[in-house]
Amino acid sequence: MKNALETNSVSKNFGDFTALNNVSITVPKGSIFGLLGPNGAGKTTLIRIINQITLPDSGSILLDGEPLQPNHMKDIGYLPEERGLYKTMKVGEQILYLAQLKGLSKAEVKKRLNHWFEKFEIGDWWNKKIQELSKGMAQKIQFIVTVLHQPKLLIFDEPFSGFDPINVNLIKDEILQLREEGATVIFATHRMESVEEMCDDIALIHESNKLLEGKLIDIKRQYKTNTFEVGLITDNEPQLMHIIKSKFDVSPAVFKSLNTDLKLNIRLKDNESSNELLAFLMSNAQVNHFNELVPSVNDIFIQTVKNS
């Protein structure tokens, strides 16, 4: 499968400060790609380079296999972290202007807008000025502006910061829908848990270096510890504890439960299977909680930073 976007050894310095150091990422077509890292890691710089707002010092970028060129601006939809609209301009005129800058014709914009206005139930907003809208309403307009020209690549920088929960859900649904229609999506965020559930692929950036990249599921597999969280109901807690400890690697666990007596994290060795564990537990106590501990991206990130 072709890649929607590739960056090859992209570096960028601002004076003495290195914002990006030989960063290469590969975004597969049709994926939702999480560009993750703490504040100041270089995510926004990389995104600005992809959007041709900033020029890289070295390295190359391929969009759909072609070297990036000014013509590609219309193929990308970008919702920046610092986003806003002309306060005194009317909603309709504003969208029209921004969409025309992306190369759409006036008639085409109006046709597509009908669809979105209906979808977001904002049909009567055409003549409203942005300063009359609430923040949540303005966010909907910003989203429409980002996707109206049906770009092949959508880039969202901290998409959910400042969005209310209803809008977050609305927009998550829309993004998934756009992916269904063939778009590739890049999320950049420092709140890793917020997009973890949506991402197929991720790259971790820390202090201008890429630390990790790949399919989220592969990375999680790679980082899994074979640990299971179990909750047991028993009459004789000390005895049960003793039996388990003699067979497995055990540590106390913390989770919410109504009537569990014993909460444990049990780490299996490579030759042990979860079924064996479960069978063993069932023969000794009543099991009311059994869950494989999957590392969160946050855990993986912290671990990677520690190891690097």
């Binding site: 959007n51 041709q52 707002i53 000014p70 601006m73 219309k74 990308i76 970008y78 919702l79 920046p80 610092e82 986003r83 806003g84 609209l85 002309y86 306060k87 921004l98 800058l101 992306k102 910003q142 502006v145």
Partner: peptide, 16 residues
């Protein structure tokens, strides 16, 4: 005004 209304980045992702 374009800076304070934060629209500038949206615009320059479309034009030079």
């Amino acid at each position: 005004e374009e800076k304070t209304s934060r629209i500038i980045e949206i615009i320059i992702s479309s034009v030079k």
